[in-house]
């Protein structure tokens, strides 16, 4: 990523500085500079059948604000991808959706995020059932130091989803099946999950997440540590999962966003710049910054 366009992008109320002479030489660069973060998000933030509505979401780390006034609907049984340059607040925003930011002492979230009409930041809300409904898969596969079986069974066990061993077996089996891992591990369910390959571990983490039957699965760069083949498997998986789950995926790969998602949100410096149908964003972006990013001019 080139540093200059990033650091020079500023809010509208601040007058842009005249370009420094040595940078003015590049036409592309001065063009990028003229693109500013918009006051309101471009594109359509609403969705006809939303499962999550975010309104005026701001996130602060201590005094530093990382996410600014994000308004966004997330459609039911859809894949929405979030893209943007590094450090633009994608992960931070994603972690708001299941209140994982609570685990960071200095993080503070304002605004409302409604899950099926209920504000998850309502003080009366308990994060435990919330996180059971909104699962998460992390950038680095993080299986527990337990057997494959116990990894998948962990969620159902703590939430009491199975009334006996038979039911639990069934949940584990279907979750692994859905995650496309069953064939590879069915003979060694009692072996440590940490003994699997990176791609298998990531699918194990996905199986673990779907074993508690969440409504939404958040994925933060789930393929960034994987090779193309494992990545392809996980992308296929995401496509299938869409039938039953809503998926929010953060990715640095524009191809991946184009392949797996129906809607795409472009973040920049903590602002949601543009959101819309994935096809539209990638073929005909409205905002200059979005266009620059997806055409690879920076980021």
């Amino acid at each position: 990523m080139e540093a200059n366009p990033m650091t020079q992008d500023i809010r509208p109320e601040i007058t842009p500085e005249p370009p420094a002479p040595r940078e003015a030489a590049s036409a592309a660069m001065s063009e990028a500079r003229s693109a500013e973060v918009p006051d309101t998000t471009f594109g359509v933030i609403e969705h006809p059948d939303p499962i999550i509505n975010c309104r005026d979401v701001n996130v602060f780390y201590g005094d530093k604000q990382a996410v600014f006034d994000v308004n966004l609907d997330i459609g039911r049984h859809q894949v929405i991808s979030m893209i943007g340059p590094s450090g633009c607040g994608k992960s931070t925003f994603l972690r708001c959706l299941n209140r994982m930011n609570d685990t960071i002492d200095i993080a503070r979230v304002t605004g409302t995020i409604e899950l099926d009409g209920q504000n998850i930041y309502d003080p009366k809300i308990d994060v435990v059932p919330l996180r059971a409904r909104v699962g998460m898969v992390f950038q680095k596969p993080n299986p527990f130091p337990k057997s494959i079986y116990d990894n998948v069974a962990y969620g159902p066990r703590i939430h009491g989803l199975a009334k006996d061993k038979v039911e639990l077996d069934e949940i584990v089996r279907t979750s692994l099946e859905r995650a496309g891992l069953l064939g590879e591990v069915k003979d060694r369910l009692d072996q440590p999950g940490t003994g699997l390959s990176g791609g298998q571990q990531q699918r194990l983490c996905i199986a673990r997440a779907i074993a508690v039957s969440p409504d939404v699965i958040l994925m933060d760069e789930p393929c960034s540590a994987l090779d193309p083949i494992a990545t392809a498997k996980i992308e296929d998986l995401i496509d299938e999962l869409r039938e039953n789950y809503t998926i929010c995926i953060v990715t640095h790969s524009m191809q991946q966003a184009a392949r797996v998602s129906q809607r795409t949100a472009y973040f920049h410096l903590g602002y949601l710049v543009e959101v819309g149908e994935t096809d539209k964003i990638f073929t005909n972006p409205t905002h200059k910054l979005t266009e620059d990013y997806i055409t690879g001019r920076f980021g």
């Binding site: 993080n142 703590i158 983490c205 997440a209």
Partner: peptide, 21 residues
């Protein structure tokens, strides 16, 4: 920390996370 995050993201409580993971 990833281990704790994994458990918390599944809806485990703090004490479950500590005890079981």
């Amino acid at each position: 920390q990833a281990m704790r995050d994994g458990a918390l993201a599944l809806g485990a409580t703090k004490s479950e996370t500590v005890k079981q993971v």
